[in-house]
């Protein structure tokens, strides 16, 4: 397996700052706005963006974590049940605009599951989507509102987002799967 860095720590930081500004701009403020990270790397991303918004807007937005395992549409296809990381939504999403955060947007199935999961907690006014990397190959009609970097990929490639909180380092790497590793 060969890997090539496509975003450095600094590029990740700048992308997240830009997204934090875009979110506020699109929402025309921070009123009734909440961030929800999708387990597992969406959660630190949501916290960091909340941090940037706090810096430039002086407002602390509510942040939640969503585990979408129970909503996946491929549970019957996976070899073993993934380990559940936990959902923690410490606010009522009714009447809020909720921005979902994830590291990579690929088929769109995770986002579909996340929307289903979120709506089991209430009826948000709007759901928006922010991702660090959009690698294409959508299988569902889903589009991100805020994208850190668009990366054209082939299906033989995999995108690894590494974050300090989960992996000890901030970077995005593209890797090519060897034939036997391909799905």
């Amino acid at each position: 397996m060969s890997g090539r860095q496509i975003m450095s720590a600094e590029e990740v930081r700048r992308a997240l700052i830009r997204i934090s500004h875009e979110i506020v701009e699109k929402h025309e403020g921070t009123e009734r706005l909440a961030l929800v990270g999708i387990q597992r790397r969406g959660v630190p991303l949501a916290r960091r963006i909340a941090g940037f918004i706090a810096e430039h807007e002086g407002v602390s937005l509510p942040v939640g974590a969503l585990d979408i395992t129970f909503y996946r549409d491929d549970l019957s296809m996976v070899a073993h049940q993934p380990v559940v990381k936990g959902t923690d939504l410490p606010f009522d999403p009714n009447g809020l605009t909720v921005v979902l955060l994830d590291d990579v947007l690929y088929t769109g199935r995770t986002i579909r599951a996340a929307m289903d999961a979120l709506m089991d907690f209430g009826r948000p006014t709007a759901i928006r989507l922010a991702v660090l990397v959009d690698r294409g190959h959508r299988e569902l009609p889903i589009r991100a509102d805020h994208v850190g970097k668009n990366v054209p990929t082939s299906r033989d490639e995999t995108i690894k987002v590494r974050l300090v909180e989960t992996d000890g380092v901030d970077e995005v790497v593209i890797e090519r799967l060897e034939p036997e590793e391909r799905p």
Partner: peptide
């Protein structure tokens, strides 16, 4: 964590 990053489709140590 790195192992888990792309391992959600494969058996993990605690599967």
């Amino acid at each position: 964590a790195a192992r888990e990053a792309d391992a959600s489709r494969a058996p993990t140590a605690d599967a």
